[in-house]
Amino acid sequence: GSLMYASIFGNVSAIIQRLYSGTARYHTQMLRVREFIRFHQIPNPLRQRLEEYFQHAWSYTNGIDMNAVLKGFPECLQADICLHLNRSLLQHCKPFRGATKGCLRALAMKFKTTHAPPGDTLVHAGDLLTALYFISRGSIEILRGDVVVAILGKNDIFGEPLNLYARPGKSNGDVRALTYCDLHKIHRDDLLEVLDMYPEFSDHFWSSLEITFNLRDTNMIPGSPGSTELEGGFSRQRKRKLSFRRRTDKDTEQPGEVSALGPGRAGAGPSSRGRPGGPWGESPSSGPSSPESSEDEGPGRSSSPLRLVPFSSPRPPGEPPGGEPLMEDCEKSSDTCNPLSGAFSGVSNIFSFWGDSRGRQYQELPRCPAPTPSLLNIPLSSPGRRPRGDVESRLDALQRQLNRLETRLSADMATVLQLLQRQMTLVPPAYSAVTTPGPGPTSTSPLLPVSPLPTLTLDSLSQVSQFMACEELPPGAPELPQEGPTRRLSLPGQLGALTSQPLHRHGSDPGS
């Protein structure tokens, strides 16, 4: 009898404990919600809404976190579960008819179910419309201010047509639940991603989709105040780019002037030289400038040598048109050559190039014969006009050509200096018209024969001689050997007369 009593008592207590286990969990969670309300000092109306929603959600799901349970299964099984949970929507909604099984599984994985109690606001006026909503159960109302403009029910759709707008718009009203509602919502990016994977279904979906109420604000059109608020930074940046392009296009129409201050000032006329910023005076940081632009901040801005204009002085008759350009485009679109090309026009420029290279940067340069637009006047290309890779490749080509020119210049200078040193070592320090008596009659020769300089066969020296023939050397430049009979510069000019005159010897006659 005691054994029977113990078994009955144990079973009854276990049954009672299981009955009250759900209630215990409910009270535990309710205590957490109330502690949250007390800690954050939530006001009474919002506090009442929180408690009511918790009670309804507990009775609806029995305190089970559906998302946590669903995430515990593998992905393939999750797709089947989501397809079952959203079967009513996918079967009865017209846009989803005719979709393949794979497309429906992908869509079912992207849908999220939302449960809303009465009085809950789903979308506020001015919120971004980031999702498309399908009503599965219940009814909602749409308000503009305090005026109800629409009441939607089961199988209705609200949001915005995503295929017509590249960016999400703003809501033009509040969406509030009238009863307990079940909503299926899919985010904008998720829907577009699935439709991109199934393009054959995309056309059918957009053609058959009928949005019951379009929440997009109709005033959000390009150029409206609301649109400016939504895309303020983007609009200002776009206007700045367009104004920069218009100014650079105007600059290219004036090829007669070359400016070292950047493309923003290349198009300024002579009357605007004294102004601080020219056409860019209202925004000094709008356009890029070269490193020399920092010198323009000092006094005497109108007389600054940074602004270059072609000189009108005539060229000498024998002067060549100019050196070879550094870039391939210089032959086609440049009416002034790079300062480095002028360094190779003569030997005198070679000796004085490194010492006063900055001073020569603004000297007169030889002109190319074609009066085409200036290379320095070409505006900086924006990322939309020329690819970045093209600019980098041009810079690399320019750097390689500069290296080759520097190597060639160093070799030419070394060769010229070597020839000058050899000339100085071969010439005796001094010569006299009267020579010392020699031991015999073989001493009648006034000077030792001097062998002429070897013929220069280097390509670089031939180019130097060509430049010497075309360029007029300055007075202080050293002379180079030329073709024809060679003669030492330090010898007297009348050596031929010395050989014809008898030598005057000093000596005593033994017979006297």
Rank of each mutant, 00 (worst) to 15 (best):
D127C: 01
L128D: 04
L129D: 03
L132K: 01
R137E: 11
G138A: 01
S139W: 08
I140K: 01
I142V: 10
I151N: 06
N155R: 06
D156W: 01
I157A: 12
I157M: 06
P161T: 04
P161K: 07
P161N: 08
N163A: 07
Y165R: 06
P168K: 10
G169F: 03
G169N: 03
A177K: 01
L178N: 03
T179K: 03
Y180G: 07
C181T: 09
D182Q: 10
R188K: 05
D190N: 03
D190L: 01
L192R: 08
L195M: 08
L195C: 08
D196W: 08
D196E: 07
M197F: 10
E210A: 09
E210L: 03
F213E: 03
P222N: 09
P225C: 04
G226I: 10
E229M: 11
L230S: 11
S235R: 11
Q237M: 14
K239A: 13
K239G: 11
L242P: 15
K250R: 07
G256N: 10
E257F: 12
L261P: 12
P263R: 10
A266V: 12
S283G: 10
S285V: 11
S286T: 04
S286R: 04
E295C: 11
P299C: 09
S302Y: 06
S304W: 15
S304N: 03
S304T: 05
L308P: 10
F311K: 12
P314T: 07
G322M: 13
G322L: 14
L326C: 07
L326D: 08
M327Q: 01
E331S: 08
C337P: 10
N338C: 05
L340A: 13
L340I: 14
S345D: 11
N349L: 02
F351R: 07
S352D: 05
G355I: 08
D356M: 15
D356G: 09
Y362Q: 06
Y362L: 10
L375P: 12
L375A: 12
N377T: 10
N377A: 10
P379K: 10
L380M: 11
L380G: 11
S393I: 13
Q401V: 13
L402R: 03
N403W: 12
R404P: 03
S410C: 15
A411I: 08
M413S: 07
Q423L: 04
P428E: 08
P428I: 06
P429I: 15
P429R: 13
A430Y: 12
S432C: 14
S432M: 09
V434M: 11
T436R: 12
P439T: 09
G440Q: 15
G440Y: 12
P441E: 12
P441I: 05
S443H: 10
P449H: 13
V450M: 12
P454T: 11
P454D: 04
L458W: 13
D459C: 05
L461P: 10
Q463E: 15
Q463W: 04
C470E: 05
E471S: 11
G476N: 12
P481F: 05
Q482L: 08
Q482K: 05
L491K: 09
G493N: 08
Q494Y: 09
Q494C: 13
A497M: 09
A497E: 10
T499H: 10
S500M: 13
Q501L: 11
S508F: 06
G511T: 07
